[in-house]
Design a protein around this nucleic acid. Structure first.
Lengths: 251, 251
DNA sequence: TAGTTTCGTGCAATATCGTGCAGAGTCAAG
DNA sequence: CTTGACTCTGCACGATATTGCACGAAACTA
């Protein structure tokens, strides 16, 4: 194990898990704690992470991320993302929608996965720069700032020329009757278009989105292939979704 | 075993395994460690891999790379960015290249500025989400991870349909004779194309880039409108640039 | 406050690095 | 064919980097 490899690994662990315990990590790698502590100190010196007693946390920007994750419970999103990342087969062409849940998905893609990821979200694109084997295809267009995705005719035209195996869609509402919905008309249109160009559409939904509805429908529930959500939801909520013929994955 | 064969093999191993240990590799090939180390040094000099203690890693996992670039002289870059931001008139259509200096530019755009910013860099796009009055047009394409910009035919086609007033270009080398250069052929082609579609091209160059040259020429010096650099450089360095007929702005 | 864990530093052992140098091979001019 | 310039390679050696251990200081926990 090369020193720089170890340091890269440390940063990867921090990105994916949000924290690192010096003792545990040294045992996992079979090196002394001193070595890990030294690495942490040096990385902290470069501003690449935040040193804390017992280990390390992600650096500044991600710190807020982690803090808010703890509060808002968006570690749920990390779990959803992790589960979704495992659904991707090597060599597949995957369309990743924008949104924080999909950022988590990107962050948890196995580092040895070879695949093509298409996205109209610059945030996702930046996140995927770190993945050595994932080829990224960026969809251009006018940037819709609220969701940080490209929309408009240019995007639509680029999307219409692409066929993907999977589409991981973000949405603000998933409701048995109104279907999958979002808060912007243009965004809804783009999402619908991407879904049409993809063999399977997968929706990742946290608890508060299930049963919620936003102004603009993207597609009816029946057009979704798989709905990924957290485990432990009331059976009553789930029943109405099950009857729509979609695969329900509980994490 | 020819030297060039060995070097090709080194790069292949790096692509396939993601790392190379000098000692092991020398034994495997039956040559001395010195020879391997020499190869690694030379390849690293050409930017084809990243030299680390004990061996080598692929050129740009871009991870620590970009992060560390962000660190290097970022206060200087911030000053350059600030000065460049003031060159933009309200209502103009501005093309922002990728790179850390341009990120600084984006960060320092006056918050009341109304303008259209076109970019093929997702990093820049994300940065501009914060600006309330700047409309962002994202250029899509295949993501070139080292520089974090979209390149390729798709990008070229999108760019060719756009006319901009200003183009803030990034480059790794600005030299009186070799002109403006960068380290990737495709990136150089894209930059040249953007410049052709723009009324004026402005280059932001930190001290270490002046007088430096990279493998691929984007354009001769004479095609640049304005060169923005830090103040206090030796007159000797500046003279050769002044004679090219470009406007020199010292910050 | 007392006990335990973690931290930082100094130190020694080991591994790796860079450089200078010499021998072997190649090639072209004489 | 010889000679000289050049390149590639391996070796020697001093310099530098990395690692684990020891030990006192600091931080955390009950």
């Amino acid at each position: 194990m090369l020193t720089s490899e170890r340091k890269a690994l440390i940063q990867q662990v921090l990105r994916q898990e949000g924290r690192l315990v010096a003792k545990d990590f040294s045992q996992k790698l079979g090196v002394s704690e001193d070595t890990i502590r030294r690495d942490l100190r040096e990385l902290a010196g470069e501003g690449l992470l935040q040193r804390v007693h017992g280990g390390a946390l992600p650096a500044s920007s991600a710190v807020a991320d982690f803090a808010s994750r703890e509060q808002v419970g968006s570690s749920v999103k990390a779990k959803l993302g992790q589960a979704a990342a495992r659904m991707i087969q090597p060599g597949q062409i995957v369309f990743l929608d924008g949104g924080t849940t999909n950022v988590q998905l990107a962050r948890h893609l196995p580092s040895d996965l070879k695949a093509v990821v298409i996205t109209h979200s610059p945030s996702i694109a930046v996140e995927l720069v770190r993945h050595p084997h994932v080829e990224v295809e960026l969809i251009g267009g006018r940037l819709f700032k609220h969701s940080i995705v490209a929309v408009g005719a240019t995007s639509a035209e680029a999307i219409s020329r692409i066929r993907a195996d999977l589409f991981f869609m973000g949405a603000t509402g998933v409701h048995p009757e109104t279907g999958v919905t979002t808060g912007d008309r243009e965004e809804a249109a783009i999402k619908a278009l991407i879904a049409r160009q993809s063999a399977e559409t997968i929706v990742l939904a946290t608890e508060e989105k299930l049963g919620a509805a936003s102004p603009y429908q993207i597609m009816p529930l029946s057009d979704i292939g798989t709905l990924v959500t957290v485990a432990g939801l009331p059976e009553e909520t789930l029943r109405s979704f099950r009857s729509s013929g979609l695969a329900l994955v509980e994490v």
